[in-house]
């Protein structure tokens, strides 16, 4: 564990708490992509199967349980409790275009040809693109509530912090995980456009609005 990874994980944790806060305080999931949330739940469930047979640490265990539980809870809130506030007509990204290629990539790039390892690879590739339906929705509506942009910024910061973590681990532990690193860099790159608007507008006190 190093400072970059710890801050990254805390940022990830914060992003989920911000998302829950947004839904509870506005009593609405307007502006949140159900498809992205469903993809994250899929990512956590397929990646954390090792909960059943591999012990890393208490920290690791608790975080995994939290990520699985909170992602399923968000799905419940969106699908049942605040269902009327979710508008599927603007959440139109075709997720099959993500799931198919990620499955193919997992078959091509993995560390061992076993079911848990294939699912692990799949989850890594899927996580890297899971934000796309959300960003696509943002593009379509052209604006977002400020709290939603804080959620996305915290999520993006988590990914960005994992990059110095990998550089640090390369030097201190001689450890490199090419699958996670490649997918992680792609994932972080997807946020660049968002970060530009976030830093130049939202943090200056303006509303998140994309140029027409």
């Amino acid at each position: 564990m190093n400072i970059f990874r710890l801050l990254g994980d805390l940022s990830h944790l914060a992003s989920i708490l911000i998302l829950l806060q947004k839904i509870q305080s506005t009593r609405s999931c307007r502006g949140i992509s159900f498809k992205t949330q469903a993809l994250y739940a899929t990512v956590f469930i397929t990646r954390y199967l090792d909960l059943f047979y591999d012990w890393v640490s208490l920290y690791n265990f608790v975080m995994k349980i939290f990520f699985i539980a909170s992602s399923c809870y968000v799905l419940y809130l969106m699908k049942y409790k605040y269902r009327p506030t979710h508008d599927p007509s603007i959440d139109t990204f075709r997720v099959e275009y993500l799931l198919g290629p990620c499955a193919v990539l997992a078959l091509l790039f993995h560390y061992r040809f076993t079911l848990p390892e294939l699912l692990w690879s799949f989850s890594i590739f899927l996580e890297s693109v899971a934000i796309l339906p959300q960003l696509f929705m943002l593009q379509r509506t052209g604006e977002a509530e400020t709290i939603t942009t804080h959620y996305l910024a915290a999520l993006g910061a988590y990914r960005a912090l994992y990059i110095p973590n990998w550089i640090y681990r390369w030097f201190t532990e001689d450890m490199v995980d090419p699958i996670a690193v490649t997918a992680g860099i792609v994932q972080t790159a997807l946020y660049l456009d968002f970060f530009y608007v976030y830093f130049t507008k939202v943090l200056q006190g303006q509303k998140f609005e994309l140029p027409a």
């Binding site: 990874r5 591999d54 890393v56 690791n60 996670a180």
Partner: peptide
Amino acid sequence: PTASPQHDEL
């Protein structure tokens, strides 16, 4: 570097 990393990251 290790060929088959431990999945100790989240």
